[in-house]
Design a protein around this nucleic acid. Structure first.
Lengths: 340, 340
DNA sequence: TTTACTAATGGAACCGGTTCCATGTGCGTA
DNA sequence: TACGCACATGGAACCGGTTCCATTAGTAAA
């Protein structure tokens, strides 16, 4: 029913190759012929068939994005960044949400070859060596965000550094009883939680602050479980004076509980988050800000560059982080712990 | 480089048609032949080319989703619902975010014909008559969510009813000074805000509560502007005793300000939201809950049904809403306004 | 005037699947 | 024994673009 390039060619009394040239802005067409073709296109209300074009040139003009969750704002922020770049390009975005680990493997498999997407952006889902090998073998360009593999390009944040920075901030304020709450550290998703934890341990060690097992809690993902962990911490005989939450979502859960039980933040309890989601600003949360939106922008730009230039090496970029001090951290309540 | 159906045919010593039959589980292949083909596929590590298939059958196996923002949780929730259904189907999801109105038109135009997607789900972006006509003419299946057009299928919420319900709840608690805050009502996005407002007016009228212009504020989208509007309301000489916020995001902004200026919710000020996003539960917000995730599920299911059954009529579904009473609404402070 | 080169153009092959249609084989039935 | 039919199967055409290559015309150089 819809008209094809051959209809246009017939109407304009030219060959199909010429129509194709006009469509692709080839200079090798005379102005007069071009105009005839354009008129014919107009009259027939012709729209080129994208699929046919894709088959012919062997590209999908599509970028696949794979991420673990849509429920957490940090992923959505990254996605927004990606989307904003792709929107300016000729690439469409297909979205895959791998809420359970088996999906991740399915998606990796499904997208390994180029038949669905010309390239992939993978957020917080580190591929196995075997999977990475597959991408390389199939020549499928991949950019990892918040995940790392030596053979693939990536945009990462120095989470050890970030964890250290957050913990140091609390130590400098005079805290000694510093808790760390996070997702389960051994999940395949969100490996950065582990690095943040390493940074936490490192800072404690450097500053000769003892580490207490009881101040280190892990739980299921999300604000609700962060609340539970916080309750547990605050119920200790010797509760922490500060909580380093491995994500802003965790931190907000901690703030919920503080408010609920009437503990004043930051006077009685300091809370520092990590990520820099929008809500962090709203609740005035001190946090380690990694520019999430920017990480999406960077990853998409990197991938587009790779598609354009087909580099033989992988790209590695590290995004900067910064400590943003707001109103949820302060020196601990008992003055004998203060710095001078 | 990758092997094709002809390679497989050669290896298995069969015709290409037979290979195709095996790929498509046609019963018209003998077990023995089928096995030979499967072995060949295995040996060659053959993967069918999706694009070629799409061109051949004239379908993209892709659903386009167009939504205005990724910044607000309500859209993301709907998207999640859509995603969860599509994930179980053979359809991929291409995402288009129309942050500015001109993008909306571009996307509508780009996706009007079937060359990029077999069907569309459009969230909160009502098409013009002309655009709707275009979809119909191109035979492009469309499901609108939180938007309405008589000639297109849609999943809507009775927002007038919802606005009425919220307002009545406040009135029944004894409030007479009830404010309404929302986005600008005349934006092309999020037309439901208007209906909620109508419901608000209707309830006031029915209960013979006077409407005051000063209690009706509009502003830019988002929590921040909701905060501003709330400050403005609370600074009135005769401030409202209750605020009906047109979205939970607005309501949360209102709660921020109440806390900031030390006004107790719900004792001194009642706040009711609308939507039922996750955060509403966290902050214990009384709200009109429309099942956002469910609306996504429903729209995707509807679209898949349409693709399967090619109905001549449009589908219209209305999702139910319910009042969820939590801890942000209570009778107004001065007792003389109470019900008996 | 012939030759050489460039510019504009058309036809055919190709991308890798699906599917229509023709062919061959084996079996039951008249 | 001949006929008809169902079942497997293969070949070719097709989907609608892109592109290689050949052809023609026009112009500058020899």
């Amino acid at each position: 029913m819809p008209s094809t390039i051959r209809d246009v060619a017939k109407k304009a009394k030219v060959g199909i190759a010429t129509v194709s040239r006009v469509l692709n802005n080839s200079p090798a067409v005379s102005d007069e012929t071009r105009q005839r073709v354009l008129n014919a296109i107009d009259e027939l209300n012709y729209k080129p068939n994208l699929i046919a074009r894709q088959l012919s040139i062997g590209k999908t003009q599509t970028i696949g994005v794979i991420l673990p969750y849509l429920t957490l704002p940090s992923y959505v922020e990254r996605l927004r960044g990606i989307q904003s770049v792709l929107d300016e390009s000729n690439y469409d975005l297909i979205l895959f949400v791998a809420e359970i680990p088996s999906k991740r493997d399915t998606f990796f498999e499904k997208l390994a070859d180029k038949s669905r997407a010309d390239g992939l952006i993978i957020i917080s889902l580190p591929p196995t060596d075997e999977q990475a090998e597959r991408f390389i073998h199939e020549n499928q360009p991949v950019v990892l965000v918040d995940a790392y593999h030596s053979r693939l390009s990536s945009i990462i944040v120095n989470d050890i550094q970030g964890g250290r920075l957050a913990t140091k901030h609390l130590i400098e304020l005079g805290h000694k009883k510093i808790a760390y709450i996070s997702d389960y550290l051994n999940t395949p998703f969100y490996p950065s939680m582990q690095y943040r934890y390493k940074g936490y341990r490192k800072a404690l060690e450097e500053e000769k602050i003892p580490y207490y097992q009881k101040y280190h809690l892990q739980g299921d993902r999300g604000r609700f479980y962060a609340q539970q962990m916080t309750r547990q911490l605050l119920n200790l005989k010797d509760p922490p004076t500060a909580i380093f939450a491995a994500s802003d979502t965790h931190a907000i859960g901690a703030l919920d509980v503080a408010q609920e039980v009437g503990i004043k933040v930051p006077d009685e309890l300091s809370v520092i988050g990590y990520d820099g989601i929008r809500d962090a600003e709203y609740v005035n949360l001190t946090t380690i800000e990694q520019n999430l939106f920017e990480s999406g922008v960077e990853s998409a730009s990197m991938l587009l560059t790779m598609l354009r230039e087909k580099p033989s090496d992988v790209y590695k970029a590290e995004l900067s982080i910064k400590l943003v001090i707001r109103n949820t951290t302060a020196p601990p309540p008992n003055p004998d712990n203060h710095n001078l």
